[in-house]
């Protein structure tokens, strides 16, 4: 069967995005990419994907607008509180035995997951010996993460999540409210390195004891997911931990043999050393 015209146009558009700007969405899960490209095309006022492609190639100002549609910034602090409870109660006791720790939050969005882990590590007394890497491909999201500002309306949910995760302090200890926003304390960023890093095109950069990569790989196709899991495998120290999103798993990955289930419920895996 021949491809539908729109599928051809989408393939060419993604190819153009990669050749011209090195953003590689070619092996993302197609069904959602299509939905978001359709939104982008309609909102940005183009008749066809080909017209959008022409604009993208000739006008760099189109790039950030398109990227805003292609990356999904949906997150919460302590999203799925039971995950953070499992990190606190089951993973932390292992991590305590190391004199120094490295933690990688891959696909950190606007920082919700990062701040959750930093706060958790502070509560558990491990922050001082830990270096956190927070990476994403969205410059915009990284800038926001680095600023540590969240709309105050979201704090009720974050506070509730934090409490359910077994939080030992009050979330309000970590931010001050100003102009409708919660400004998170800059001391929380003292042990954090923010970096532009793509799980599609970039390489391993340090040895990690815990990698948290949640709701990022669901946007990848299976090959790409394999690539990312391969990076995690190579990056993790012996017996290091990998935490995924609530509906993600390693079952369909060629690297699943390198990991054991640590918490099946919470999708936390441990790197198995041969």
């Amino acid at each position: 069967m021949t491809d539908k015209l729109e599928d051809i146009e989408i393939r060419l558009l993604l190819e153009a995005l990669f050749s011209r700007y090195h953003y590689d969405f070619r092996r993302y899960a197609m069904a959602s990419i299509k939905r978001r490209l359709q939104l982008a095309r309609d909102d940005l006022g183009f008749e066809t994907y080909s017209a959008l492609q022409a604009a993208l190639l000739h006008d760099p100002a189109v790039l950030p607008r398109l990227l805003g549609y292609l990356t999904v910034q949906v997150s919460e602090m302590f999203r799925d509180p039971s995950y953070f409870r499992a990190i606190r109660e089951q993973v932390i006791p292992h991590l305590r035995t190391y004199p120094s720790l490295r933690v990688w939050v891959a696909g950190c969005s606007e920082g919700e997951e990062l701040y959750s882990l930093v706060i958790l590590f502070r509560e558990e007394g491990l922050e001082d010996r830990t270096l956190f890497y927070a990476t994403d491909i969205s410059q915009n999201a990284l800038a926001k993460a680095e600023a540590g500002l969240f709309s105050l309306e979201r704090l009720q949910l974050f506070t509730e999540n934090h409490r359910k995760s077994g939080g030992k302090s009050s979330l309000s200890d970590y931010y001050s409210a100003a102009y409708g926003r919660a400004v998170f304390d800059k001391s929380l960023r003292e042990h954090v390195v923010f970096a532009d890093h793509s799980l599609v095109t970039d390489a391993v950069f340090a040895e990690m004891h815990l990698i948290s990569c949640r709701n990022v790989m669901i946007y990848f196709d299976r090959d790409l997911q394999n690539r990312a899991i391969g990076l995690f495998k190579d990056s993790l120290a012996r017996k290091g931990f990998l935490g995924l999103g609530a509906k993600e798993n390693l079952r369909f990955s060629e690297h699943s043999g390198a990991f054991i289930d640590f918490s099946r419920e919470e999708k936390i895996y441990q790197r198995w050393a041969k």
Binding site: V72, I218, G245
Partner: peptide
């Protein structure tokens, strides 16, 4: 809390889009 999609290679995909 997740969207469910069917991919053209006949596999399932979830998304946490808005």
């Amino acid at each position: 809390d997740y969207h469910l999609l069917v991919e053209t290679n006949y596999s399932l995909a979830l998304s946490s889009d808005e």
